[in-house]
Amino acid sequence: MPQIQKTDYQIAQQQILDGIISGEFDIENRRDLGPMIPIRLFQALRMVALGSNVEDILGQGAPSLVYHSGQSLGLAMGQLAAANIDKDLETYVGKIKLLCRQLSIGLVVPDRVDLNAGVLELRVDECVSCAGIHNVSAPICHFEAGMVGGIVKTFFNRNVKATETKCNALGDKTCLIRVDLI
């Protein structure tokens, strides 16, 4: 098999995900400023760099890219949470909730779990992407939808379709993500 050279972005991604998986949030070269950043900076990256700027180039392809990015993070988080839990859904969800809180992604609350129907609905309260954003015309947290999709996909080892059905930025007070197991 030919060795595939990793790109610089892939190298950085690996280090970031390794950092998340290790649970160690301190970070080198930030002695004075520390590991936390203002939420508006994250939102600028999410809604501008990975939002309107990407939309300028990709048009209708932008949400798909954002969803896919979120899914990559969700898959990594899922792998972390799935370790040593013997496929116990409650423990898995507990670890995911904790991780999302630690990373300040949001407060994840399972709203509906109907495995017979193959449907799960998870609330993301205080969602990092859309907190303080108003008056949009459609849900905008494609990253979180992808992330939740990736998390659920890892646990069930099945294809899933995650859709944000409520969004705080729409005035819904929370973000609700419906995951259909395919």
Binding site: I57, G59, Q60, G61, P63, S64, L65, Y67, H68, Q71
Partner: peptide
Amino acid sequence: NTDAIGASVQVVFGAAARAAQ
């Protein structure tokens, strides 16, 4: 890899449509 091909198709089409505009 359906996840990757699906996202790529949307991204490539979106970029091409933008270029056309």
